[in-house]
Amino acid sequence: MKTLLNKDQLNITLQRLAHQLVENHLSFKDTAIIGIQPRGIYLSDRIAHMVRNITGQKRIDYGRLDITFYRDDVQSRDIQVPSDTDIAFSIENKSVILIDDVLHTGRTIRSAMDALIDYGRPKNVELLVLVDRRFSRELPIQPDYVGHTVDTILTQKVKVYWKEKDGKDEVVLIDKV
């Protein structure tokens, strides 16, 4: 097991990502942040909070998206109970920033885009991930904002721990046997 980001490094990375979002979206008037359930929402919670602090804008459209019903492997794995989808605003003509913790094969993001489009037609969609597992993509999907890039092999796993959920802030690379 190898630590990719410790607590302090993670915080600095999150701050950078939040500032990059503000740099590109300024007031966030026509921009929505949407975290992907179940693990992406801890990241999106933090990013949304930071963006609110940086911009001083209290009302930023922030939602959570569950992609269970849009997976391409429903029949080939154990059925999963869905998490909440909570998008209490229209995404029509908005800039949407999708947020997930780890980008690996790209299939989750493919599902998320399909799910998102069923809520309306956004102006454009961007992708923010904390960890990009480079060279492991199975679909032509690339992130717009990356916290940390790592080269991995298939048997390895990137795990992001969040204080709210797991009691600590850390990103680790695990070698599975």
Partner: peptide, 22 residues
Amino acid sequence: QTADEFKQVLQRPIKKVPTLRD
């Protein structure tokens, strides 16, 4: 818990998901 989410789906403009297309 699952029905809660489907109920939410049924209130959208697009009331359909592709989950069981196979």
